[in-house]
Design a protein around this nucleic acid. Structure first.
Length: 153
DNA sequence: GCCAACGTTGGC
DNA sequence: GCCAACGTTGGC
C-alpha cells in the first residue's frame, strides 16, 4: 500500500465537489505530465491513500483523504474534441494519458495548511514543499501520511 | 542532441 | 498580478 498527494484547484474541482459526486467517487482526468502519468498508470494500486490538496486558493491546504478505487486506465477526455483536456496525440488505440478513480474517505476536521506543513520538522523532506515543485500527482511516504493524519484531527 | 523560446503552474 | 521554476517544443 502506497500513499499519494493530488493537487486540485478548488475552483475547478474541490473536495466539496467530490463529496457531492456519485458514490463520492470521481475519475482523476486531465493529468498531462509524463511523470505524473506514470504514477497513475503504473504505480498506483487499489486501496492506496490519497491526500487531497487545494492549490491556487485560500487556504492552501490538504483538506481530506481519499482512496484509489480503480487502477490506471486511459483518460478518455484526451480524445474528446473540444474538451479542455483534448490532446490529439492520444487515441483510444494508443492512449497517452491515464487516470485512476478515487473515492472520498474523510474530510479533515482541521485542514492541514501549507504553512502548517512547512512548520512541521518531520515533513521537511516532503516533495510538495520542494522548491519549484509542479507535479500535480506525487508520492507521499507512510511517515508523512501519518504525521498529516495526526495534524488533521 | 542542444538549447532558446514559450506556456503553465502555483505560491506570494 | 507578478514572477520563479519547470516541462515542452521546435529550429538548427
Amino acid at each position: 500500500m502506497a500513499y499519494w498527494l493530488f493537487k486540485s484547484e478548488p475552483d475547478v474541482f474541490s473536495l466539496e465537489d467530490l463529496k457531492k459526486s456519485k458514490n463520492q467517487t470521481t475519475f482523476w482526468d486531465g493529468v498531462r505530465n509524463y511523470q505524473a502519468r506514470n504514477f497513475l498508470r503504473d504505480t498506483m494500486k487499489n486501496g492506496d491513500g490519497v491526500l487531497f490538496y487545494h492549490s491556487n486558493s485560500e487556504p492552501l491546504a490538504i483538506v481530506g483523504a481519499c482512496e484509489v478505487v480503480k487502477e490506471g486506465y486511459p483518460d478518455f477526455t484526451a480524445w474528446e474534441k473540444g474538451h479542455d483536456h483534448f490532446d490529439p496525440a492520444s487515441t483510444p488505440d494508443k492512449p497517452v494519458w491515464y487516470m485512476v478513480d478515487i473515492k472520498l474517505k474523510s474530510v479533515f476536521n482541521k485542514p492541514v495548511t501549507l504553512a502548517a506543513l512547512k512548520a512541521e520538522p518531520r515533513l521537511a523532506g516532503m516533495q510538495l514543499l520542494k522548491r519549484g515543485n509542479r507535479l500535480s500527482v506525487m508520492p507521499v511516504t507512510k511517515e508523512e501520511w501519518d504525521v498529516i493524519m495526526e495534524m488533521s484531527t
